[in-house]
Simulated scan of single mutants.
Amino acid sequence: MTENAAPEPCYAGAYWGPRRESPEDCARRTAHLLPLLASCDPFLAQWYKPTRSTRDRRAHPLMPPDEAVLSDLFRGGANRESGGPIIEELGYSFWFGNGGSGADSASLQIKCGEYAGANPNCCLMPLPRKGLNAERITTAPVLTSIVRSQVLAWEPDWAVATSDDYRKRMSPTSDAGTFVGWVTYFSRHRGTVPPLPAPVRIEPVENMGTLIILTPERVTTHDAGHVQLGRRVGELLGRAGLLRPVVP
């Protein structure tokens, strides 16, 4: 499978366990993330507030990021019982997009500040599925930059960039932290990454953790070698104690 083959739809997601944070904390991290994403690819340089109408989706830009505006958006996404107070331990969430439409779009779905321990916090980024933007973004260098950006902003326990198809082939449960993607990140506190077979590449992310890039080629489930490599790397990481759920 070559780089010119149609890419399998990909996403990038960062996940972390219970972490009590305020709407202002979440806004600060998001304001850090957005310029980093803009440096990854021009398609990720514009983001907009969520709107009810697709007609005016570009009327409310979030770039350059304003922490006060982002704080209000997170505060508006607080979990609460109907007519009741905010359930603080369940954190805050909101979704917003880059102004694209249909298969040629990207979005960010952020859940943070949860400290009940029921589900992981996350910064999930579905990426364009078709077209020139998808072709350009669905490459090892860009996906690595996206994951690195998520790590620098959110300090997650684990992160991954891969396709849904590849995720399903690597793990029957697909729980966050339990499988290998095209690009995978492990926080330093999860353990030490062991030596891995070629063509796997390992990169540090400052003093925070380690990125693993499975192959410079576009990973696809149609390539038996890619599937075998992912399973072999998963076995080695599992023996090292790295593949465990972010939230047990």
Rank of each mutant, 00 (worst) to 15 (best):
R148G: 09
R148V: 11
S149G: 15
L152K: 02
A153C: 08
W154R: 01
P156F: 05
P156G: 11
D157P: 00
W158E: 09
A159P: 06
V160W: 02
V160H: 02
T162I: 06
S163V: 03
S163M: 11
D165C: 06
D165G: 07
Y166C: 13
K168D: 15
K168L: 15
M170T: 11
S171G: 14
T173C: 11
T173F: 04
S174V: 12
S174P: 00
D175P: 00
D175Y: 02
A176E: 13
A176V: 00
A176F: 03
G177T: 09
G177C: 10
G177P: 08
T178C: 14
T178G: 05
V180M: 14
V180G: 01
W182H: 14
W182N: 04
V183D: 03
V183G: 04
T184W: 01
Y185L: 11
Y185G: 06
S187L: 01
R188P: 00
R188Q: 14
H189Q: 05
H189D: 13
R190Q: 00
G191I: 07
G191K: 03
G191E: 05
G191C: 04
V193M: 12
V193G: 01
V193H: 02
V193C: 03
P194Y: 10
P195L: 07
P197K: 04
P197M: 09
A198I: 05
P199N: 08
P199F: 09
V200L: 12
R201A: 13
R201D: 13
I202N: 10
I202K: 15
V205F: 07
V205H: 10
E206H: 05
E206S: 13
N207P: 00
G209V: 01
I213F: 01
I213W: 01
E217P: 01
E217F: 08
V219W: 00
T220E: 12
T220P: 06
T221Q: 05
T221I: 14
